[in-house]
Design a protein around this nucleic acid. Sequence first.
DNA 1: CCCACGTGAGACATTCATGTCTCACTAGGG
DNA 2: CCCTAGTGAGACATGAATGTCTCACGTGGG
Lengths: 198, 198
Amino acid sequence: MSHVGYRRLMAVDRDRVLRTAAALLTRKSTATMDEVARAAGISRATLHRQFAGRDALVRALEALGIAECEAALAAARTDEGPATDAVRRLVAEIEPHAGLLAFLYSENQLFEGEEQNEGWARIDERIAALFRRGQSSGEFRIDLTPAWLTEALYGLLASAAWAVAEGRVAPKDFTHMIVELLLGGVRRPAEPAAGKES
Amino acid sequence: MSHVGYRRLMAVDRDRVLRTAAALLTRKSTATMDEVARAAGISRATLHRQFAGRDALVRALEALGIAECEAALAAARTDEGPATDAVRRLVAEIEPHAGLLAFLYSENQLFEGEEQNEGWARIDERIAALFRRGQSSGEFRIDLTPAWLTEALYGLLASAAWAVAEGRVAPKDFTHMIVELLLGGVRRPAEPAAGKES
DNA sequence: CCCACGTGAGACATTCATGTCTCACTAGGG
DNA sequence: CCCTAGTGAGACATGAATGTCTCACGTGGG
């Protein structure tokens, strides 16, 4: 008889397996179910009992990624204060999950016409709303659409995650690199009078 | 109809097959060899005669992408004039091949430790050199490393290619979106003269 | 006219990831 | 102390993609 919470023999907790799988698939997106199971320290049979197939595992990872993105959006309080600062907070909050995001981002490119989790649409909308808010307040330029800025943020997050994973850039610079490039671009800001930028 | 089609003396136009494969794999990166063959209008056997296996096909596509990148670098004359303009020219030159680049970019993430084509290192270096030149000339800020800017450019190219493919942004804005975001960032530039907005 | 070459079509074997099942074992609860 | 649920190990079947091979056919060249 199974009730809501398994109290007795629960040597394997689903969340821990899921996070181990996320960490592995972040590094090697083609890892097999057997490799995932080994990484989690469980057998393939048990893994399959937790997630009925690779699809289910990926979908669970997608749900995890969506949940973490929404948590990051909430923690960043994207509707408070200057949009510029909100973007900084958002990237800082997402940073720990950028690897998983990069995996899911590229994974989504594989599915041509298949419907993607509607959670992404919600997140896209919240991020786009942040950029839109910045445009309304005059902080952001208006010639770049919020939709593109949202996509660009994903791209930069994935690029940075991969670059860090391959040792091409320092992990400590992650947030700074993304935020500075996204906000200010590569062009050196024109200094009106005395350079107040350090 | 007496129109039989292409010449069938020598080999089937290898370059044409390659470009058809590039176009298909750009849209569906998991396309099978059979799908590639059908897309090219040839049989799987003939495809296999041209490219001994999927690996060989992908490696040929990689060589094609590298060649096109180097051609774009040459056509953009990245070592002439202001670095800012050179970046604009470079992105404009790469635009037609962004789809293939995005495919190869994500494909490269699949290979963990395997050595990647040394051609990428050359291209990375040339792009990084462009950013370095812009930093030396004072056009670009120096707190973002050329290595990161190079990675970011790849990420933005891939993001834009996917966003366009999925209809989330307009194809005509491709170069403008990437260049403007990369160069100027999302933050509205401070207007030294009479600001029409506070 | 005849031959050779490249091609298309398809059969076939192989590999690999996956899904499914059984069975013995063990730890914990009643 | 016994029972039961969850686990690990492994066998087995399945399906998909691939690599390999054969063979007939048509076109172009000799």
